[in-house]
Each structure stands twice: as C-alpha cells, then as structure tokens.
Design a protein around this nucleic acid. Structure first.
Lengths: 255, 255
DNA sequence: TGCAGGTGTTATGTATACATATGCAAGCCT
DNA sequence: AGGCTTGCATATGTATACATAACACCTGCA
C-alpha cells in the first residue's frame, strides 16, 4: 500500500508525543480498534506499538487486558524520579574521571552557551546532559538513563517547558557540575548532579503527591479524548506535523 | 483452541530458557515461521514474544529485519557488566543506609545460611542479592538491575552454575558486604559490592574478549539448531518440562 | 571471465476473519 | 427485595491470507 512499511514506529512515536502534549494522561485507555481507525491502519501495527510502549514502561494492562497509560502510585513515582537522579549522579561521577580533554572542553563550551540568553535553553540543557552521559563511556548506563527518563514523561506532561525561575538555578547548577567534572572531583560531581535532578523534579513529585491525596484511589483523567469516529487516511493522522523527531531521538530530557 | 490464551508468554519464556541452556547463542537467527511451526502456533504470538525479547534487549534485528539473538561487541558487553556492577553497588550503598532492623536480621540470616554446606548456594546467593535490592527501598532501581542482569544471560550460557572455587570467595565477599551494611557504611558496602560483581563477571568478560580476538568479525555460532521440520502440538513443545518458572520469576541472578 | 541487471525465493509487514475471555446488565430464583 | 446466574456486547488473542521488500542466484552481455 505504501512505500515504507512499518507504521508501528510512527504510531509508537505518535502516542508518545500525545503524552508529551498532555493529550494522554495516566489512566487513559488505549484501545486497539479506535487507534487503528484513527491512524487508518489495522490493529496489527497498533498492537506492536502498544506492546513496545508497554515494554518501555509507559503503558500497562488494565481492565479486560486493555492497555492504559501507566498509572503509578506516588511511591513508585518517587522511586522512578529517585532512580533517574541516582543514575545521573553515578554517570556524572564516572564522567568526572573518564572524560578526555576534548570532551571536557566540549562540555565547557556547551555550559557557556547555555548561559547566554539568546539560545534555546532546552537545547543547551539537553546537550549538557548528553555530553556527560557520553563522557562516562558506558553506553548501557546512558541508554538506561534514557529509558528511565522516558518513563517520567506522563508525569511531566505540559510541564515540559522549564519555568523561567528554574532556568536561572539550572544554569548555576550546570556551572557547578562542570567545575567539579573539570576538577575530576567524582564525588562532588555526583552529589551536585543528584541535587540538580532532584531540584528539577521536586515540583512534579509534590504535584503527584498532592493529587494522590486529593483523589484517594482514582486517576487524574476522566475521559479518553481519542476515538474521533471516522476513519482517517494514514498520512493524515501520522505525518500531519512533519516527520516525527522521535524516530531518531527517543526523547529529550529537560532537567 | 485452548483454554488459556496467550501463548506469547510461554514462547517468550521458552526462548529465554533456551538461551540459559545454551541452545541459542548470540547471532543465532530467530525466524518467525520455524518457531511458529515448532511451537504449533501461528506467527502472531511468536512475533509478540520476539518483540518483547527485543524490548528487553535479548534480541535485535539482523538481516532482512529478522530477529537474531543479540550480539554485542566486546566493549558493549563490558559496558553491560559494568553497568550491572555499578547499579548493584549503588543499591547496596542505599541499602546500608535504609534497611530497617528486620531486613538487616533477615540479610544476616541468609548470609549465614549460605555459609553452610548443605544448602543450595545458588538459592542463598539469589536471596542475598534480592534482600539487598529490597532493602534499598526503590522498586525502580531493583527492576532496572533485574532487566540489565537479564541481558547478560546470553553470555553466561552454560556457565550459570557457579564454579566451586568461586563459591568460597563469594561467601567471604557476601560476609564482608553484610558487615558493611550492618555497620551502615554506605561507601564500603558499595565498594565491596562493586568488587563482588566484578569478580563474578571477570571470567566471562575475559572469555568474550578472547573469543572476539579469535573470530575477527563473525559470531560464535555456526548454525541455528531450531527448525525440527515437523509441526508439534503446542503442549508438546511448551509444557514438556513442567510449568515454566519464568512466568513468575523473570530470571535468577547468580553472582 | 567479470560485472550488472533482472528475476525468483523467502521472510517479514499488514489486513482481516474468527475464537475467546471478560465485564456488565438484566432476569430469574430464592 | 436481593443475590446469583446467564446472556450479550465488546475488546483482545490467534490464525491465515495477501502485499512487499530484500537477498541471492542466475543469466546475458561486454
């Protein structure tokens, strides 16, 4: 029917983007047939996409074995954020010992670029953390952080854009981390990174905890916004916003 | 056709068990149709099982988009083993600070049990590491270690049974780790655990490196031992050796 | 004899039909 | 009137048929 084959990748990316956009909240149902009709494909690619989302931990099985956007209890959410912080700290400590001179200067340059007001801070921020992860010289740990960080997505939702007040603090923390790494102070780099990640997530953890206290056992969502009813052509639903960046970059950390 | 539904779980577990048994080596092809015929099901559940294996990182796409048992270059394998060791060290350090009195005494009891000659050391070993992971009070980190440790499976193969010489050293290391945890010495517990895991893996890493030097760019396997040719009844292939323990326990670490 | 292009085979990607399990609701029995 | 059972609706699990892409081999030409 089409040239590429493999709609599953596109559907996978599309669902993740809906989580980023806040259109899908934890607890929302992801039924196969409505998704298939909406994307204009059969259930098979949709199933593959949902299974992959399930494997990544973004989706779980709910009633009737249906897929729903993963809902974690507050303890598990805090565990998740803590795990991301601890792994980032571990990697930062390793990077402080292992980065070579080229990598150190690249990190210094990116840190300096992020302190200028003209550039997109989210971009500089992502590069900063990416360089540190590469600097640890352990691709498994780097990808593990990526996986865990991806699982934090549903709870970051619309909050992805960093708040202005947070940007200034983030810049200072990045600078301190850079100094520790340049000084090859592994323990200090790890401690600073742990605090940095924790500071980025504290607002979200608080929000999740408050929400959990308010709604004793129910989720934050009320209705699934999908299921438009008509059958769309595949291109219409999938490639509307240009090629998905998730095909290359799984996600972008914003700490 | 059958009562349970969900052959995919059984096939997933069966393939992992073949890796444990050494019947599947890194690089072996996992074609859908032969597997489907062998298990007596259609390609659909086989596809789901393979996709799940791919998500866990045990399997990757090879030529013609076919699934093959994952082959890592020696650097990636060392990264994997190092990542397991670093995470185990991290968790041990956290456990040293967070375990409560009941958990500490349980860990001491298991350590003592492992030092007696009558009991199965693999069992005591697994319980030891399990208790430490629980003692860190972070389920995400614990499951992450489980996932990574699962990925080491293809390279442990028949070597799963610990060598006798290694058992004695392992007991001493366990005792030292226990002492550090009981003393709430986080840094010491982490360092000892890192060394403990490293000592368990050093033989495998050496073997992988030697094998890589011997065979410049080819894998260790020569032929896929599957594809018996005839079509088996599902029960015959799947439930021959009793109910699969992998349905409940994903795998068992043997450090 | 070597290379290039085409064709055939094969395995995966997708679609669709059917089987099955589950949740809900209505009706019947107690 | 209430609880249990049964039937129905719906969504997932599985099977199979078809489309497609890629690799390999073969043949023809230079």
């Amino acid at each position: 029917m089409q040239a590429t084959g493999r709609w599953a990748d596109d559907i996978y990316a599309a669902i993740i983007e809906r989580m980023i956009a806040g259109e899908l909240s934890p607890g929302d149902a992801l039924n196969e047939l409505p998704l298939a009709e909406e994307f204009g494909v059969s259930r098979t690619p949709v199933r593959e996409a949902l299974q992959r989302l399930s494997a990544v931990g973004l989706v779980e099985r709910g009633r009737r074995r249906a897929f729903v956007v993963k809902r974690l209890d507050p303890i598990a959410i805090q565990d998740l954020f803590e795990a991301v912080g601890e792994l980032a700290a571990l990697v930062a400590g390793m990077a402080a010992l292992r980065m070579n001179e080229v990598e150190r200067q690249a990190l210094a340059a990116v840190t300096a670029a992020g302190e200028k007001d003209g550039v997109d801070y989210a971009e500089a921020n992502a590069r900063f953390h990416e360089l540190i992860q590469q600097g640890a010289h352990n691709c498994v740990l780097a990808s593990t952080i990526g996986d865990l960080s991806l699982r934090t997505l549903p709870w970051r939702g619309a909050q992805l854009r960093a708040k202005a007040s947070r940007v200034e603090a983030s810049r200072r923390e990045h600078r301190a981390i850079l100094d520790a790494i340049l000084a090859r102070d592994s323990a200090e780099a790890a401690a600073l990174m742990r605090a940095h990640i924790g500071a980025s997530f504290v607002g979200i953890v608080d929000m999740v905890r408050r929400r959990a206290e308010t709604l004793p056992l129910r989720g934050p969502s009320t209705e699934s916004p999908q299921a438009t009813g008509r059958r769309a052509e595949p291109q219409e639903a999938l490639e509307a916003g240009g090629p998905s960046p998730l095909r290359q970059e799984p996600q972008r950390n914003v700490f």
